[in-house]
């Protein structure tokens, strides 16, 4: 289990990296390495060139402006975990990131790497879907923005081109007092979730739900926003029984069938996880 031979590049700037991506045929971008390195060790991927972007300092930042938080692609998961801004204004991201691997992997793993690897169980991918995040991508002709709804194409495949590089991702903020809940079911702490759910809620002064985001991770080939559930919540007062009824809709989501769990089990978990996430979210409305 040793990496195959490859040429190694460590550009210092985004332009340099894009230059390399544009000229090299079979290159892989190395970010935090927590997914690419195992794949290299197992020779699941055989790139001719590896472009290590760890030296592009400009990609490492957390910025908050006008109700939006922006993470540079090379921001370590650890930095997100310990960010006071994230903890205060995006508490669901803080809650979710504690489930991302382990301390050793979060110290290295990056948000950009996670989004590009696009494992359907990945918590940060689920967060991006839940927030309608916007991914910034740089290419030979400048930068473009991809709303997260259009970012995943299919299983572990993104909408970015071979000569493009993800440089950052913006998460719009939910207003103070929003409810949030992230729950997941994994066999071991830190494992990829067999099913996870993220719920964000806003209510009016009567306690009626005015806005909802319900996302399933790990269930389908990409994270799924369950629009039918979200719509059914609007205008209603939440309760566990009501959520239970509404979340039955999650059973209809097309689910992965693999060695960890059969599809119908994932669909069942989807109903349970989404309800539990909503219950948690409802309980937190008005508290932050």
């Amino acid at each position: 289990m040793k990496p195959p031979p490859f040429r190694y590049h460590d550009p210092r700037t985004v332009d340099e990296a894009i230059g390399l991506l544009s000229t090299l045929d079979n290159a892989k971008v190395l970010a935090g390495g927590q997914s690419l390195m195992p794949m290299l060790n197992m020779r699941y991927v055989l790139p001719d060139d590896v472009i290590d972007i760890n030296k592009i300092a400009a990609l490492c930042y957390i910025r908050e402006t006008d109700g939006v938080i922006e993470f540079g692609a090379m921001t370590r998961q650890r930095d997100i975990e310990f960010s006071d801004v994230v903890k205060a204004r995006f508490p669901i991201i803080h809650e979710a990131i504690l489930n991302v691997g382990h301390r050793q992997t979060r110290n290295r793993g990056t948000i950009g790497g996670s989004l590009c690897h696009l494992d359907p169980s990945a918590e940060l991918v689920t967060m991006a879907a839940a927030h309608d995040a916007v991914v910034t991508v740089a290419g030979p002709n400048g930068t473009r923005e991809i709303p997260f709804a259009q970012f995943p194409v299919t299983f572990m495949t993104t909408a970015i081109e071979a000569n493009e590089l993800v440089t950052g991702v913006r998460f719009p903020r939910w207003p103070a007092g929003h409810g949030y809940g992230f729950v997941e079911f994994a066999r071991r702490h830190g494992d990829f979730a067999i099913a996870s759910a993220a719920a964000l809620l806003e209510t009016d002064s009567n306690g009626k739900i005015t806005r909802a985001s319900v996302t399933l991770g790990g269930v389908s080939v990409t994270p799924v926003r369950v629009r039918a559930v979200e719509q059914a919540l609007i205008g209603q007062k939440g309760s566990e029984d009501f959520f239970r009824e509404v979340c039955e809709e999650c059973r209809k989501v097309a689910a992965i069938d693999d060695v960890h769990a059969p599809a119908n089990y994932r669909q069942h978990l989807a109903t349970v996880m989404s309800r539990r996430a909503l219950v948690a979210a409802l309980g937190r409305v008005g508290k932050a």
């Binding site: 460590d10 390495g33 927590q34 390195m37 290590d52 760890n54 650890r78 992997t105 110290n107 290295r108």
Partner: peptide
């Protein structure tokens, strides 16, 4: 696991050149 600049990291998931 080693400490890389004081932070734990898996040394099988890093290249020596890094």
């Amino acid at each position: 696991t080693i400490l890389f600049d004081g932070y734990s990291a898996r040394s099988c998931l890093m290249l020596a050149v890094q």
